[in-house]
């Protein structure tokens, strides 16, 4: 009988003292793996899909250009525009933009600048080839077309 009673007395509670630690671990994971968004994107961005993606190693060498139809078509019209940092720029301003971005980088890394073109899939090649020509003139020849991984069914 005494044996029986002892069992009934056993603690039923699950120790929750480690819960904050678990949550903190999750928190740190997200803090480390994510990057705060630098600028809000004002152009439509439906990124095309591809299979043969490669990953870039050094994030500090990558500068982004966003190309697509503006989200506020009533102000900016329907023609695709180029967004650099927080503003729309013209193709002729790209050389200036590249040299400004290069100036922000460490001296020995400047020549390794990589331009990441985030292009909406509806954008036309005409505009993009104009951008590429300007990048060639600005001596920023490393280019990455951002794509999503195509999921095979």
């Amino acid at each position: 009988m005494s044996k029986f009673k002892k069992k009934a007395d056993a603690k039923q509670e699950i120790p929750t003292s480690a819960l904050p630690d678990i949550i903190f671990m999750l928190l740190f994971f997200f803090m480390v793996t994510t990057v705060l968004r630098e600028s809000s994107i004002n152009v439509k961005q439906v990124i095309p899909e591809a299979r043969e993606l490669t990953k870039l190693q050094k994030k500090s060498l990558v500068k982004h250009l966003y190309i697509g139809e503006p989200k506020k078509t009533e102000i900016w019209g329907k023609e695709p525009k180029i967004q650099a940092n927080d503003a729309f720029i013209d193709t002729k301003d790209i050389i200036l933009w590249v040299s400004r971005e290069k100036a922000k980088m460490k001296e020995h890394e400047r020549e390794q600048i990589t331009i990441d073109l985030k292009v909406d899939e509806e954008a036309k090649r005409g505009l993009i080839s104009d951008v590429e020509l300007q990048l060639r003139k600005a001596n920023a020849r490393k280019l990455l077309y951002t794509t999503r991984q195509r999921v095979e069914i």
Binding site: A50, L56, K59, L135, R141
Partner: peptide
Amino acid sequence: TTIANDKGLFLLLPP
């Protein structure tokens, strides 16, 4: 936050 997506097709432009 957004998980950084620096994946795509790499290309080297001519001079």
